[in-house]
Design a protein around this nucleic acid. Structure first.
Length: 289
DNA sequence: CCTAACTCCTGCATGC
DNA sequence: TGCATGCAGGAGTTAG
């Protein structure tokens, strides 16, 4: 599940290897990968031919590649979902089993390939629009700033958090409130802030909520410095290499192992049909569940 | 308007 | 061995 740091690693790779190049041809190998491109796969392929990739941008877990050439004002917008990869591969190298979209460039250099085993991810071409937080592709105008953006205002998000009627982990995962956080970094931020996932957001103090946002920014910054979190070959940079942050996780996936702070065994609980990992001593559950 | 359940998908681990 | 089941889960959609 690529989250903000993993997507940023991919963005940097695309910026280095694909930005500035002209697309010669696009091949959609699986229609589901462009299901959010409503005009369909043929339209996706057709409107990208001879366009130039002018920049690689990111907000939260979304990537977009701005387009130049004869026209401007649009971009390829994408989400990696759970298993999506953007790979830079030499022309002629064997197709990946789950190759979904191939970008061939006019310079005959390496291809850009969207590979996605579980097909939760996808790409689309969309217009750029002016939103409250700058110029972004229309489909993601509703998401909030991410904690590593220059314009991220923690005090505003703290007030929004405290106004919500939900539990704190749901709020962390709500991309319209604060973008970029998924299950891994939600659990890590909660562990650092010593908060149980089921704590009601409305009852958080301002210092608690502020500390939680700080923890989220810190853990994602540290992960980025190590190339992101990888459990296996699914989460890789554009060269297919894994990051090392999984060695630094304190809560996520650590069930049965001692808490790095207090030694108590980390516990796994079901949450939203998935998992939450936490230290039952450092992160006591709220009284009323 | 707000919140939460549902749904999409494939590969691997597990159990009988 | 082989089949069924569970699990990984982001976010748009739908229901309440």
């Amino acid at each position: 599940m690529p989250e903000l740091p993993e997507v940023e690693v991919v963005r940097r790779g695309i910026a280095e290897h694909a930005v500035g190049r002209t697309i010669a041809k696009v091949e959609v190998c699986h229609p589901r990968a462009v299901r959010r491109h409503l005009p369909g796969p043929a339209d996706f392929e057709g409107r990208l031919a001879s366009r130039v990739l002018t920049d690689a941008c990111r907000r939260g877990k979304y990537l977009w590649l701005t387009l130049g050439g004869a026209t401007t004002g649009d971009a390829i917008v994408g989400h990696l979902g759970m298993s999506g990869q953007m790979l830079v591969r030499p022309v002629g190298s064997a197709d990946e089993t789950h190759l979904r979209i191939r970008f061939v460039f006019a310079d005959d250099g390496p291809e850009l390939r969207f590979v996605d085993q579980r097909t939760f991810g996808g790409l689309a071409v969309a217009e750029l629009v002016e939103s409250a937080f700058g110029t972004v592709p229309e489909p993601i105008a509703h998401i909030g700033r991410d904690p590593l953006e220059a314009g991220f205002d923690a005090s505003t998000v703290v007030e929004l958090l405290r106004r919500k009627q939900t539990d704190v982990k749901r709020a962390l995962l709500d991309q319209s409130l604060i973008s970029g956080i998924g299950n891994i970094y939600a659990d890590e931020a909660l562990w650092r802030a010593k908060l149980h996932w089921a704590r009601p957001t409305a009852k958080l103090t301002r210092p608690q909520a502020t500390a939680l946002l700080t923890a989220a920014a810190e853990v994602m910054t540290e992960s980025l410095a190590q190339g992101g979190t990888s459990f296996d070959a699914l989460y890789v940079n554009v060269n297919g290499q894994s990051g090392y942050f999984s060695r630094s996780l304190n809560a996520y996936g650590q069930a049965g192992k001692p808490c790095a702070r207090c030694g108590t065994e980390i516990v796994r609980e079901a949450f939203m049909n998935r998992s939450s990992f936490f230290c039952p001593r450092c992160q006591p559950p709220p009284r009323a569940r």
